[in-house]
Amino acid sequence: MSDMKCWDRLGLAPTPDEREIKRTYARLLKATRPEEDPEGFQALRLAFEEAMWQSSEMSRTPPQPVVPPDSERDPREVEAEALLRPHIEKLAELNEQGTEEEAMAKLAAVLDAFELRDAGARDPLLWQLFEDGMLWVCCDIAANHDAFLRAGVSLFGWMEPDSWLRQRDPKTVEWLGLRLHEADALEAVDELLALLDEGEERQAMVELARLAEAEVLINVDVRHLFEAELMVSLSEYDNMPLQFAGAALTLFGWRRDHRHLEEYHPDAWREFGRKIKPLIVF
């Protein structure tokens, strides 16, 4: 289907709004049911898929969050927020660009500077604003350090069964839980690499076989990330530990299905494939 035809079939002007495309498709679909009009349906479906693809290619501006103007807020809150904001932004920056040590040191410094450590003595309003900021750093920025995330979770008890966050936003808690599990899995990758660097390939293989069955990798998303990060790390070796790589291929079924690895990092996958050539032909 050429560029504009799909929009004609849907009766829409080209739009990046996926919801609008879906709505239109749904309306037309009810008059072109797959079991009643197979040909009409196939044409409609083709137009829909093409339009969805084109819309994803168009540039989109993300919706801006609605924040009430300062004039409508408690002046004390505005003042406290202005005080905290640069520190929260610094924490975000250190998570995205700095080292884990730097981020953790800054966190400790903020807790001390605003006297937030003692639950009985700290200012409740300041604590609440700090929690909002920390939640943003832990959930919404591009990257954060695992230790930092763990510290946030333990400071505010977000993962507790009766936390306010779990009640108000269970999806975020679910997401945080996944991130914590992912952090454990990434740690496991680091330990494997350390063994390999020490020349303990045998032992690394034993450990990998254990991990393949272990609780830490049961979750499908966690396992996905573990496999991908392991592959990327292996692709960087000049001298590929071939037996270990072979064990990974077998234990995680990469011969059968490696689309997730390819999608995660196409260049690393190509490099990995090149380096394990002596082992197998894909």
């Binding site: 679910e174 689309r259 997730h260």
Partner: peptide, 16 residues
């Protein structure tokens, strides 16, 4: 496990 992973990858979705 395998069919679950396969379906998620085909649908280009994560479990989350």
């Amino acid at each position: 496990r395998e069919p679950i992973e396969k379906a998620l990858r085909d649908a280009r979705l994560k479990a989350i």
